[in-house]
Design a protein around this nucleic acid. Structure first.
Length: 276
DNA sequence: CAATATACCTGGATGC
DNA sequence: TGCATCCAGGTATATT
């Protein structure tokens, strides 16, 4: 599902296609997403505006308008963005459609409606951005993402290290799949209390985490052309997972069976031999 | 404040 | 074949 790499690849694909385009019309569905669709704000601050650039923070896409307004999109669990010719038939669960000045449409499709759409008007750009960013954890590719930083953050927390990595207020962009994969690569048991990890373990999390996320971004980059999908259903690329979804399958390192357990209600996969 | 539980949703897989 | 049940996971909010 869309975690940091998928969102980043989406950003790059959209940036290439949308930079300089003007939004000519906006339509939406009658449903609410995780939050109500801000119809009035879309009309007042996004319609008829030119797209300048697109940024990413955590799993959010920040579509920057020439006017200084920002359109914020989160894909949730099942959200997909498609760039399609305007004559293409709409799909069920298309919740936001932005008509562009080149006869194409950007469509946000989200069957489970866990996604969200927000608008930051130019007038409140600063406060909206600050408030938003302060709620999100550190970016894994940020130079401040260091063992010292994580050690300090984890010092008082008894939560399992996997829950720590998935807590969006602590670390940005890592969801269930990559949390499982990163901890396997770092040879750390996902149940280990965060406060007990030594600096060397955090160092491995940083190194392997960046490597895996970057590898996934690269994998997505190679399929970027069809990522936005002529069908409107791009389907997320995925790495060959080493533990995720591989209950009872042999560990790639030691060949002993991968264990599946529930941690905070989330499917958790690990090798009890290799990860301690 | 920290940690856990739950709500929000649909579709696909599984069980009877 | 139909119907019920479970599971998937991101995030906000409520509860302990």
């Amino acid at each position: 599902m869309p975690e940091l790499p998928e969102v980043e690849v989406t950003r790059r694909g959209l940036l290439e296609q949308l930079s300089g385009r003007t939004i000519m019309a906006i339509t939406w569905s009658a449903h609410r997403l995780r939050t109500e669709i801000p119809r009035r704000l879309l009309q007042d601050h996004i319609d008829r505006q030119q797209i300048l650039t697109i940024d990413r923070r955590a799993k959010y896409l920040l579509i920057r308008m020439q006017s200084g307004a920002t359109l914020v999109i989160h894909l949730g669990m099942t959200g997909k963005l498609g760039l399609l010719p305007e004559e293409t038939a709409r799909h069920k669960h298309d919740h936001l459609v932005l008509g562009l000045d080149n006869a194409m449409e950007l469509r946000f499709n989200d069957s489970r409606r866990f996604g969200s759409i927000a608008v930051w008007p130019a007038m409140q750009a600063m406060e909206c951005e600050c408030e938003f960013s302060s709620r999100e954890g550190i970016e894994p590719f940020d130079s401040d993402f260091t063992a010292e930083y994580l050690l300090r953050l984890a010092k008082s927390r008894q939560i399992p290290v996997k829950s720590f990595l998935m807590n969006t207020r602590l670390v940005a962009g890592i969801g269930n799949i990559y949390a499982n994969e990163i901890l396997f690569a770092a040879r750390i048991n996902p149940l280990m209390p965060a406060s007990q990890l030594p600096a060397a373990a955090w160092q491995r999390i940083i190194k392997e985490g960046r490597r895996i996320l970057q590898q996934a971004i690269n994998a997505g980059g190679s399929t970027i052309a069809d990522f936005l999908g002529a069908s409107g259903h791009p389907g997320y690329f995925q790495l060959q997972f080493k533990v995720y979804g591989r209950k009872d399958a042999p560990c790639p390192e030691c060949a002993r069976p991968i264990v599946k357990t529930a941690l905070a209600g989330r499917a958790t996969y690990y090798c009890p031999i290799c990860q301690r």
